[in-house]
Design a binder for these strands. Structure first.
Lengths: 263, 263
DNA sequence: CGGGAGGTTGAGCATGTTCAAAGGATGTGG
DNA sequence: CCACATCCTTTGAACATGCTCAACCTCCCG
C-alpha cells in the first residue's frame, strides 16, 4: 500500500485487542449479564499464539473443532487446481470459526495473516451454550445471521459489481466489522492485507486493486499510513458499491420487529 | 434453451414433488423416527399455492417469518441500483427459507420462478424444534452447515472460475441438491430457469450462458428437452469446475469423525 | 547494505459485454 | 383451437474491463 513518508505520529487509539472482543460483538444483539460475560471470558481461555502466515487448518484436514479469534487477522481460503486462490472470508477478533471446514468435507483452508491469538472451542462447549446459556445462544444466533448476510453480500459483490464497487464494498464491510468489536476509531482501523490478498478476496488481480486504491486515494476517499487504513468518506464508498446505509445490520441492534418475533 | 423437435416421450420419473421433501433431505443426516416424520409432516401444513413469477418477499419487507418450499423453484435475489440483478440462491423443495431477509435488514427479495407451494413456518415452531425435537434440531443444524458450504462454494465460483467453470459448477450443485430430495433420476432433473436467470446467478450475461450451454451440448455433457435437463457427464463438468467429488457433502452422510464430535 | 516482499506502471491481450436483429416456443384471449 | 403477442434463444460484430507479463521502484528487515 501507499505509505506516506511524512506519516504523522499516529494517535494512539484502541485499534488492538482489549479484553474479549466476543463480548463486544454479542452485546450488539443482546444485553449480557455479568454472569454471561464471565462465561464468555472462561470460554476464551486458554488461548494460543500463532505467528503470521501460519495455516490453522489445511484443505479441510483438521484436528480442531473450532476456535475464537482473540487477536489478529486470519483468512478462510481455497486453493484451486489452476493455482489460483479465493479468499472466502476474513476472520477478525470476535469471530468464531465454526469448524464447518471439515464437517462438510469442503476443502477450505484457514490461515493467519498477522500474528494471532486464538482460543479453541470444543463441541462440548457449544452444546453447553445451546443447552444452558440461552441469552448467549440467542446472541450467537444473531451473529450467525449476520455472518450469512455478509456471505450473501459478497456473492452480490463478486457477481455484479465492477472492481471499484468490490473494493468499496469490502472496505465498508471491514470498517463496520472492526467497529462492531471496538477496533475502529472513526474511519480508522488496522488492516494488514497485501494488495494481492485483497485481489484474492475480490476475484481481481493485485494490479487492478492497485489502480482502484490509487484512484480512491486521489479522490480522498481514504488514506493508508503504515498498516492503518483511514476511510475518509464512507458515504462515497457506499455510493460506489451501490449500497444504502443499513445493509448488513452491522453495528446496530436487530429491528424491533425482528426482536419481538424471537422473544 | 435448446428444445429438440424430435424429443422422445420423456420417461415418467419422479421429478415432481412426492410427499414431504424436507423429510428426505434431513434423512441424509439423521435417522428420523416415525414420530419425527409425523412432526415434520405437521410442520409442512397448511400450505399455500403461489403462481410463477410472484414475489414472496420484496426488498426485505416481509410479514412472513419463514417458510418451507414444498414444490417448485424460487430465487433469493437482489436488485441493484444500476438495474442489474444478482440471484443469490435457488430454493428448491425441502429448503427452509429462514427469514434472515428481514431480520438483518438486508435488501434481498425472494420470488417464485415456477408455480410453487410453500408452508409458512413461525418462530414459535422453530423454538419448539430447538427445545423439544433434538433429533430434528441436529438434522437442521447439519442442513445449515451444508447451506453455508454452498454459499462459500458460490463465492469461489464467482471469484475465480471462468464462464464455463461457473456453469459447470452450478449444474453440479443443482443436480446434487435435487438428488438429495429425490427429485433427480440419474442425471435428470426439472430445471425451469431461463438463460438470463442462469446469468444472473453466475454474474454473466444470457449471451454468454448460451454459448457455454451450446458448447456443453456439443460435447455431450448434457441435453435439454422441454424443461428437463439431463446431465450426461457429471465427471466432465466437475473437471471443468475444478472440483473433486466430495465437495459440499451433498447426498451423503457427514463423515464419521464429524458425527462423533457432535454426538 | 543487500535481499526480498510488496507496490507501481505500461503495453498487448482475452474473456465476456453490449447492442441489435431474427427465429422459436409459449400461452392467452377471442 | 387458432392467432397473435410475448418471452426466450440464438447469432454476429464492435467494444470494454480487467488480465498477463514484465520491469522497476520502495520499503523493510536482517
Amino acid at each position: 500500500m501507499h505509505i506516506r513518508k511524512d506519516a504523522p505520529n499516529v494517535k494512539h487509539v484502541q485499534l488492538s485487542s482489549s479484553g474479549n472482543p466476543l463480548i463486544r460483538k454479542l452485546s450488539q444483539f443482546v444485553k449480557l449479564s455479568d454472569n454471561d460475560k464471565e462465561f464468555l471470558d472462561r470460554m476464551a481461555l486458554p488461548d494460543e499464539r500463532l505467528p503470521a502466515h501460519t495455516d490453522i487448518i489445511v484443505e479441510g484436514e483438521s484436528s480442531r473443532s473450532g476456535f475464537l479469534m482473540k487477536e489478529g487477522t486470519a483468512i478462510r481460503y481455497r486453493d484451486l487446481p489452476d493455482g489460483g486462490r479465493q479468499i472466502i472470508t476474513f476472520l477478525i477478533p470476535g469471530d468464531i470459526c465454526d469448524g464447518h471446514v471439515f464437517l462438510t468435507n469442503s476443502m477450505d483452508s484457514i490461515g493467519t495473516v498477522t500474528a494471532a491469538r486464538i482460543a479453541p472451542i470444543s463441541y462440548k462447549m457449544i452444546m453447553e451454550i445451546f443447552s444452558y446459556q440461552h441469552r448467549i445462544c440467542e446472541a450467537i444466533w444473531w451473529s450467525w445471521l449476520q455472518e450469512q448476510a455478509i456471505l450473501r453480500e459478497r456473492i452480490v459483490s463478486l457477481g455484479r459489481r465492477d472492481a471499484r464497487g468490490r473494493v468499496a464494498y469490502l472496505l465498508c464491510e471491514l470498517l463496520w466489522r472492526h467497529a462492531a468489536v471496538g477496533l475502529a476509531d472513526g474511519g480508522r482501523f488496522r488492516l494488514a492485507l497485501t494488495q494481492a490478498q485483497l485481489g484474492d478476496a475480490l476475484g481481481l488481480t493485485s494490479v487492478r486493486i492497485n489502480h482502484v486504491l490509487k484512484e480512491f486515494r486521489g479522490r480522498s476517499f481514504l488514506e493508508v499510513e503504515h498498516r492503518l487504513i483511514h476511510i475518509l468518506d464512507v458515504v462515497a464508498l457506499q455510493r460506489i458499491a451501490g449500497i444504502s446505509k443499513d445493509y448488513l445490520q452491522l453495528g446496530g441492534a436487530p429491528t424491533e420487529m425482528a426482536r419481538s418475533l424471537v422473544a
